Simulated scan of single mutants.
Amino acid sequence: MTQPTLTYVSFDDFVADVMTLAKALRASPFKPDFIIGIGRGGLVPGTFLSHATGCPMLSVDYSTKVPDFSDDLLVKLAQRSAAGEKLLFIDDINDTGRTIQALRQALLQDGADEGNIRFAMLIDNIRSVERVDFSARQIDRDITKDWFVFPWEAVAEIHAIIEDSQAVPERTL
């Protein structure tokens, strides 16, 4: 299998991306009651965005699929949304759109008010099947095949980074 092109996102670029999102949120009529970090890649951006905006943060661990930390929490978040609370979900990258699609579907099935749900990403793939409401930067996966390595991932062993990049081969081929 071909080695992916790894593009390391520097800490300074990461902070700049968070500040871009914070600025966009301040300019938006949508004022979230909570920022929801999507585990695993959205937890660090969520924490930073929470500090940058003063908005409290919650989290949901979608990546492990452990019901107590994903499905059960999504039911509670859907109830909060239905009660009028505005929720901003954040992740590191909208690549294929599968995470956003699954979260939206679960929230709506559990009665969420779609008007109270928004998504933010550090990097948004314009070819994704799902659109986001806020992004710091955009890529076109038809052109950019790089695997982005965020600061919190850079501490992993290189074989783990490469293995992660190959989970969905069409992203990096």
Rank of each mutant, 00 (worst) to 15 (best):
M1T: 14
M1H: 09
Q3P: 15
P4C: 07
P4A: 05
Y8W: 03
Y8R: 10
V9M: 07
S10R: 07
D12L: 04
F14I: 05
V15H: 07
A16P: 11
A16V: 14
D17H: 01
V18T: 08
T20A: 03
L21V: 01
L21N: 00
A22H: 02
K23H: 08
A24Y: 01
R26I: 05
S28K: 06
K31H: 03
K31Y: 09
P32V: 09
D33L: 13
D33A: 15
D33W: 12
F34G: 12
F34T: 12
I35C: 04
I35T: 01
I35V: 04
G37C: 00
I38N: 01
I38F: 01
G41L: 09
G42A: 05
V44M: 12
V44D: 01
P45H: 07
G46R: 04
F48T: 01
H51T: 08
T53E: 03
T53A: 02
C55P: 02
M57L: 05
S59E: 00
S59T: 13
V60I: 06
V66W: 14
P67Y: 12
F69Y: 04
F69V: 13
S70E: 14
S70F: 07
D71R: 10
D71I: 05
D71Q: 15
D72V: 08
L73V: 15
V75F: 03
L77R: 08
A82E: 09
E85H: 14
F89E: 08
D92V: 00
D92C: 00
N94S: 06
D95I: 03
T96D: 02
R98C: 05
T99I: 02
L107E: 01
L108D: 08
G111N: 01
G111C: 02
A112C: 05
D113L: 11
G115N: 09
N116E: 08
R118V: 00
F119Y: 11
I123D: 00
I123R: 01
I126M: 14
R127Q: 09
D133L: 06
R137P: 03
R137K: 14
D140V: 02
D142T: 10
I143S: 02
K145S: 11
K145V: 14
D146G: 10
D146P: 08
V149N: 00
F150Y: 14
A154Y: 04
H159W: 06
E163R: 13
D164Q: 11
D164M: 06
S165N: 06
S165Q: 14
S165A: 14
A167R: 07
R171F: 08
